[in-house]
Amino acid sequence: MTPTLRDALSTRENALNFVRLVLAAVVIFEHTWIIGGYENAPDIPLASWAVNGFFAISGYLIAGSKMRLGFREYMVHRAFRIFPAYWAVLVLTAFAVAPLASFVGGGQWQLGSALSYVGNNFLLSVSQFGVGETLATAPYPDVWNGSIWTLFFEFVAYIAAGVLLTFAWVRRHALPIVAIGFVGIVAAQILAHGPLEVTTNLFLNLLRFGAFFAAGMLLYFLGPKLRLRNSFAAIAAVLMVLLFAFDLAIWVGQLPFAFLMLWAGGRLPVRIGVKNDVSYGLYIWAFPVQQFVILLGLGGLGPWGTAVLSLLITLALAWGSWKLIEEPTNGLRRKIPKSWLGPRPNNQELARPRPRGITPQS
């Protein structure tokens, strides 16, 4: 029998990390045209949709994490997963990659700018993209990392999901509540770009990423009854093609797109990344590597050549990030005393009908 979505993704033996690895590689390939100053860039915003895929997968996984963990433990897990490798890429870019780039490309590195690059971006809200004049001679100057700005919205989504699913009443009625929230976010996005004419990027990005994240959450709660039939994936794929054809995909394509990402994670017979998840390191390190490859004068390899070279170099750095930073810090969080993290939710209690007037502890 075809497994349900929840059953297929309930263990580590799935292809979700491989899917995220592919999404990170897609971001690298599209950024190549921007960073290298090449002409004839792809017409489809592949990198944007790859990031949308990250948020859809995160929504599914984060919903499951919060249903298992108390709020404090959940937030500790999220912080340990995001910040250590992120801080490492900030520090190494500012004090190793950028100075070396100034030597190679003839730019100027400044200590004060390096310190402010780390300080201004320390808590995920990226407000400084360059380090001195180290990229003055690059085709895409003044931006050392054009990918990490999305991490702020990822962490905001973590907090929002964590707060929402902390309340016992919400947890008992999670499916309809998340469904209503998802529809509300989609409607708000359409109104913001339409009659409301919202121009604030912060608000527009919160709606865009929030819609894909909520789609992943909704599929988590639908997961026990939703089977991963190939026919469902075919229907979702055809629907996405039609939505792209009528320029509606970004407005109402979140749910079928999220299903395709999760279907691939549950059905593909690929186990790359099951034990060593290098997709996060690949995502946060790719942009600095690509800038440095261009500064070395290797742009003559063409967009595909520099993309492949950058991918190989970044994979090595991502492996180092996983082995030296991410995996050890993930293990370190398990050494935090349970008394500091608070109790875990009692899901059996939440699932049991209660006499009128009795409220479970949240």
Rank of each mutant, 00 (worst) to 15 (best):
Q108S: 09
G105R: 09
V91G: 10
L92D: 07
V118C: 13
L100E: 05
S116D: 13
V91P: 03
A94Q: 02
V97F: 12
G112I: 12
V97C: 03
V97K: 01
A96H: 10
L115E: 09
G119Y: 08
G105F: 13
A114W: 00
S113A: 14
N120P: 06
Q110A: 02
G105I: 04
V104K: 07
V104M: 01
G107A: 01
A101G: 14
V91I: 15
G112C: 10
L100I: 14
V97L: 14
L100K: 03
Y117T: 09
V118D: 06
V91N: 06
A94W: 08
A114I: 11
L115R: 08
A96G: 12
A101Q: 09
Q108W: 00
Q110T: 00
A94N: 02
S113I: 03
W109E: 01
P99N: 07
A98M: 08
V97M: 00
G119L: 04
G107K: 12
S102Q: 05
S113D: 05
L100A: 15
G107R: 09
L92M: 15
S102D: 12
A94F: 02
A94R: 04
L92S: 08
F95I: 11
Q108K: 13
L100V: 14
F103P: 09
G106P: 01
F95W: 13
S102L: 07
A98D: 09
V97S: 09
A98N: 09
L115G: 10
Q108L: 05
Q108D: 15
L111T: 06
G112M: 01
G112L: 03
T93I: 10
A114M: 00
S116G: 08
A96I: 15
S113T: 11
A94V: 08
V118P: 04
Y117H: 07
S113W: 05
G119D: 07
V104S: 03
L92I: 15
A101E: 04
G112P: 06
F95G: 07
F95R: 01
L115S: 07
A98V: 01
L92C: 14
G105T: 01
A98H: 05
S116L: 11
Q108Y: 12
T93G: 08
T93D: 02
A94Y: 00
F103M: 07
A94K: 06
G106Q: 14
S116V: 10
F103W: 15
Y117Q: 06
